[in-house]
Amino acid sequence: MPEEWLAIATSWVMWLIGFITVGNALIQTLLFYRVIRRVGEKIKMKPGILKESLRAALITSIGPCMGIFVGMVTLVIALGGPVAFIREGAAVGSIMFELISARTGAEVAGAQLTREGMTLLGLSLALWTMAVGSVEWVIVGGVLTRWLPKLRDAMGGGDPKLIGLISVAMMLGAFGRMLVRDDVMPTILAMSIRPPLIAGIVGIVVAVAWIKFAEKLKKPWLKEYFMLLALLLGMIITQLLVNAGVVK
């Protein structure tokens, strides 16, 4: 018999909530598509251009979606399919954010983001942390969109490069903290190289190399695949080293 938290996390109610969130996302997609068609007809856009745009969007979304899929597998293993279905079906936030917030919520409750280390309180706080952390996305996208240009000018003085630097600095700070806390510090305390550190280093090298490769080919759309490659190669290479006994 599954533990109480797992029984709740994989219950039919959670699946129902997941189908509601996914249905909402599909309805929004269809509404946006209808608006696009109407605007296209109004400005006398050729039908072929719209089809080409949809095809290009579909192709370029494969890479990012595969990166999300890899992260989703982690969330499914940790909390079950319905939770992952709900979070990504809501189409709010990102899989990297979801993993960070879920783990943070679980750790506050003294639990771990694993099947063995999770508790009912940990599940509750993980779900609340993921949901509350996505509220601002909904507010900004649904209510404050018309004022975003003014907010952009206030943050970066109207300089797009400065805004980009601010965004990069925020992401580096967040993920740099994770790298140090989860990869570097355990390695230092154990006085031996740990698998998470190897995976992190491999991921960084692969990501940088792939981005440089895309720039050299002058095909910026290839950059969308860097996360997928970094995640997969980081896990695969690290596991091969562990199996070979090089890393323990």
Score class of each variant (00 low, 15 high):
Met1Val: 10
Met1Gln: 04
Glu4Gln: 08
Ala7Asp: 09
Ala9Met: 03
Gly18Arg: 01
Val22Cys: 11
Ile27Pro: 04
Ile36Asp: 06
Glu41Gln: 11
Ile43Glu: 14
Lys44Gln: 13
Lys51Ala: 14
Ser53Asn: 10
Ser53Val: 14
Leu54Met: 12
Leu54Gln: 10
Ala56Asn: 10
Thr60Gln: 07
Val73Thr: 08
Thr74Cys: 07
Leu75His: 00
Leu79Trp: 12
Gly80Thr: 04
Gly80Val: 05
Ile86Val: 07
Ile86Gly: 00
Gly89Met: 04
Ala90Gly: 14
Ile95Trp: 00
Phe97Val: 11
Ile100Arg: 05
Ser101Ile: 00
Thr104Cys: 11
Ala106Ile: 04
Ala106Lys: 07
Glu107Met: 15
Ala111Ser: 15
Glu116Leu: 06
Thr119Val: 09
Leu120Met: 14
Ala126His: 08
Leu127Tyr: 01
Met130Arg: 06
Gly133Lys: 03
Glu136Ile: 05
Val138Trp: 08
Thr145Lys: 15
Leu151Gly: 03
Leu151Lys: 09
Arg152Gly: 02
Ala154Asp: 07
Met155Asp: 04
Gly157Tyr: 14
Pro160Ala: 10
Leu162Met: 13
Ala169Ile: 14
Ala169Phe: 10
Gly173Thr: 03
Phe175Leu: 14
Met178Tyr: 05
Val180Pro: 06
Arg181Ser: 11
Asp182Ser: 06
Asp183Ser: 12
Val184Met: 04
Thr187Trp: 09
Thr187Met: 11
Ala190Trp: 03
Ala190Cys: 04
Met191Ala: 13
Ile193Lys: 01
Pro195Arg: 06
Gly200Asp: 05
Gly200Met: 02
Val202Phe: 13
Val202Leu: 05
Gly203Asn: 02
Ile204Lys: 01
Ile211Tyr: 07
Glu215Gly: 15
Leu222Arg: 01
Tyr225Met: 04
Met227Trp: 00
Leu229Met: 08
Leu231Tyr: 13
Leu231Trp: 05
Leu232Phe: 12
Met235Tyr: 06
Met235Thr: 13
Thr238Ser: 11
Leu241Val: 05
Asn243Ile: 13
Ala244Thr: 03
Val246Gln: 05
Val247Asp: 05
Lys248Leu: 05
